[in-house]
Write a protein that binds this DNA or RNA. Structure first.
Lengths: 231, 231, 231, 231
DNA sequence: AATGAATGAGATTTCATTCAT
DNA sequence: GATGAATGAAATCTCATTCAT
């Protein structure tokens, strides 16, 4: 009664989560019901955290009832895990489209960094959910089948770029691919995940378009300087 | 869910928060009572988040009762804010001790990065609390008087280093100090804050001593390469 | 103070508030559940006041649990407002049945006063709740939609009586209908609402049957003498 | 923390309760301390009721501490009773000044009604406290020594007026003095005690100066018409 | 006479979940 | 497959009162 469920902070973006209405709305469409619940839950968990999210609030913004949520996902935690699973799945699909192996190493590295930057910059829900998972010691994502070792793709990509760059005399030969991935992630993730405290501390919102462009260039620059071979 | 509150995950470290016992424990010592509550709360909030933390759990690990917690801090949120205030205050104190202005620009920059790295590496409570605040859109830290614009110190330090480095022909002249601070923070923060998902994804824990040293060197290297003037 | 909650002082009367059982008690009957809560709450709030009433005490005397009270009414205050709404609604219903327009002005006035007297005399819960609302500056009743300006009915009745009485040369023409309503209300309300202090002060309980009849006659008499045209 | 103690509604008037500072403020002045507590308590109880008043809130607005409140008055209830005692004492003092026995019966009756009207109109704290006592079944005032049978003075005054009026052929001979007192009280009390709901219901505040004058005249008129002998 | 710190008992409210249909 | 009503357990917070100085 008091606060209803204002939930949805200004913060969530729907990119991951639009419910496609597709064809004529059938009366009972389990798949659509599930998808609808999942979409709403993604927003709510992302906005409020696992403990902060309210089952009631999720149910309320759904086309169905709270009972269905339990019917399909068993528990609040189950729903949260389903959200994690979906969100990580979404990335994988995108990553496949990135064909850096066809590019010159420097250009490939630039493309990889820009892709990583853009992805984090847009998928705030994802960034938030990863953050939330870390608060919980990653114990839910550990149970997500599709997660374990999933990032090998990126690592392979980086290995390939490094190898070709070294061969071409462009890159240093003493860089660990996983460390490099961490470095790139750090630069792309932090400015999104911590933009609120950063904004409050410095009166400067990192998600502002002008800053966004500058940061993108800066990060690409920093990574390239880092991998480049000294003359 | 519903796990009672065993609180204290393996995760918290007590570096920020030991309660100094000083002399013999007096019966009425408000300062100590407050400090004691604050220390326990720091751990609990850091481990469980604002919504996840339980007032009962905090009180239980205290030398006093739940009632005192409300007596001194008014509400759960009030206590959380007091924790934020304390934690941010702790850093400021340390930052003062860092006299990079007496060092050569390159060495000063190295010292600054190493300090930042070490601080985040050790103060996991701090890193977690910042993360948690960002989940809440920084709305609590905004109300903390001592916070707004407090980081100017770091920025001034960076400005001084950059200016001297430029004058000495060592550094590039096109770097924005706040952007540079963000870059350094990103590198130091991310590996701590997101080490759980990172560890799960790559089977490699960034807080392991061996990795720790390597990351420290890598980050210093990356920053120096970034600021260094091209020949 | 601290008396647990034996609730129900000798004072409450159940006239407003019997729960009609209708047919066999069904398991799921939201309307009945709500009515049941409302009835018990009416007695408790009337007996103890808003702050004095205990949610636990209300729940205990209900066929359901405390939780349902929040499910349907949101908060203690919400329940209190619902009680006010119901109680004021009950009067309105009764007022409709009073067809004084068909009576001779003097007889009509007598009927109105007698009705007002009888209503207050019987509905002590109502009188107490109005008193309680006034302690709170009427701030809850102000939020009750159905309340604002609801008493127009009585005023219209009085206007009609006065107009007809003036036309017939029976009543004075200088009487404001709202003032007259206040006068009648005062006489009927005070002896009920303040009968305890009155009883203590004069050793005479105004609700005693013998006094009751005498007061009724006196009040009718006083009002008629007040409105009657001087010869 | 949440609401502090806004207490003091706009409603209370300080007429009963000014703390005279008299001579130079001595360091320890028990009488003044007690008076101060009593004055603040009068306002708080009058504004919030017995259950609604907060011991903390009272103490806060006092020049002393909560402990003293218990030191002098024993308990919240004890303080409340002391307030009742003081307030009733204040009236008695005033009533003595009313020498109606020297006036013509009609003028005496008018003077009595006007005095009663003015007293209630001004002493809202008193009116509220009486109301509050009635909510509690007058059980506290019963224990106030100075209360029981105190109103005999008024009754004697009325008896005297009636007797002289009857003797002079001005008043009816069938009026019970206590009933008449009740009638006068009703008219003077109700418009003050219930002015909030009345104001909300009819959009007309009975304490407005213009209405005040009209009501005063009306009530005097009504009483005189009631007691006057029919020709 | 006076005080700030402390407190136990109990108050209101919230939450994830299940029941009956 | 779907639903509105119901709920126990636990959470946050409040209150009058007392302790130690």
């Amino acid at each position: 009664m008091k606060k209803g469920s204002k939930a949805a902070e200004p913060d969530t973006n729907g990119i991951l989560s639009d419910t496609p209405r597709g064809d004529a709305r059938r009366k009972y469409d389990p798949e659509q019901t599930k998808r609808n619940i999942l979409d709403v839950a993604t927003q709510e968990f992302s906005a409020m955290g696992l403990t902060g999210a309210r089952v009631d609030a999720i149910a309320e913004r759904t086309n169905t009832t709270k009972r269905m949520l339990y019917y399909y996902f068993g528990s609040k935690e189950g729903l949260y895990q389903a959200v994690l699973e979906k969100v990580y799945g979404d990335i994988r699909a995108l990553e496949q489209d990135l064909h850096v192996s066809e590019l010159d190493p420097v250009e490939g590295m630039r493309a990889l960094v820009e892709f990583t930057f853009d992805y984090h910059d847009r998928q705030r829900d994802f960034v938030r959910l990863v953050t939330i998972e870390n608060i919980h010691g990653a114990k839910y994502v550990e149970q997500v089948k599709s997660f374990k070792g999933r990032n090998v793709t990126v690592i392979h990509t980086i290995e390939d770029l490094l190898a070709r760059g070294i061969a071409a005399g462009q890159f240093r030969s003493d860089i660990d691919p996983i460390d490099l991935h961490l470095l790139i992630s750090s630069l792309c993730f932090h400015r999104v995940g911590n933009r609120h405290t950063f904004g409050t501390a410095f009166g400067r919102d990192p998600s502002h378009p002008r800053l966004r462009a500058r940061h993108r260039a800066m990060i690409v620059d920093a990574v390239l300087r880092f991998v480049r071979k000294d003359d």
